[in-house]
């Protein structure tokens, strides 16, 4: 009996925090791995449509992004409300696509040039006209692997 009461009196209240950094580091590494640093600030409104037959883009370094949508409110005074193309972080025209693709290509080892995918992040409300023009330009530039960016549809669809 006396044993227990003695122990309680002696117990030091401080919990060792030595392992706290380890836990934090674990969290840190997790976030470092999943992080994709936003390389471009979106200047057009892009809400991608829903779809079911999706494939995942595996390697980020082999992907270049083309954004198509209406300019955001703050750019509308300058660029109007018609759907526009954005390459990198600025507005562009169809004619800028070949240079944009080349600039991305030099960052990729030559043996992997065939695996480069263009991700088309297109707003659902946009009409096909501009999308078609972009597609034609991509074909002319020999960039044939294209991914229509879409979100997973939550309910519909069996697969």
């Amino acid at each position: 009996m006396s044993k227990f009461s003695k122990k309680r009196g002696k117990a030091s209240p401080a919990i060792s925090t030595a392992s706290l950094p380890d836990i934090i580091f674990m969290l840190l590494f997790f976030f470092m791995v999943v992080t994709v640093l936003r390389d471009a600030e979106l200047k057009v409104k892009v809400t991608t449509p829903y779809a079911t037959e999706l494939t995942k883009l595996e390697e980020k370094s082999l992907v270049n992004y083309l954004y198509i949508g209406r300019p955001l409110q703050k750019f509308q005074a300058l660029y109007g409300t018609k759907p526009r193309l954005q390459l990198g972080d600025k507005f562009a025209t169809i004619a800028d696509i070949p240079l944009f693709l080349e600039k991305h290509k030099i960052k990729v080892p030559e043996s992997r040039h065939g695996q480069i995918t263009s991700s088309l992040r297109v707003d659902g409300e946009v009409t096909m006209g501009i999308v078609q023009d972009v597609k034609t330009q991509l074909r002319k530039s020999g960039q044939l692997k294209v991914n229509y960016s879409a979100k997973k549809r939550p309910t519909k669809g069996r697969r």
């Binding site: 994709v36 999706l54 995942k56 883009l57 294209v146 960016s149």
Partner: peptide, 14 residues
């Protein structure tokens, strides 16, 4: 800074 981007889409070959 994290945006867990869902990089998914329909892949097509033009």
């Amino acid at each position: 800074t994290t945006t867990i981007v869902e990089d998914k889409g329909i892949t097509v070959k033009l």
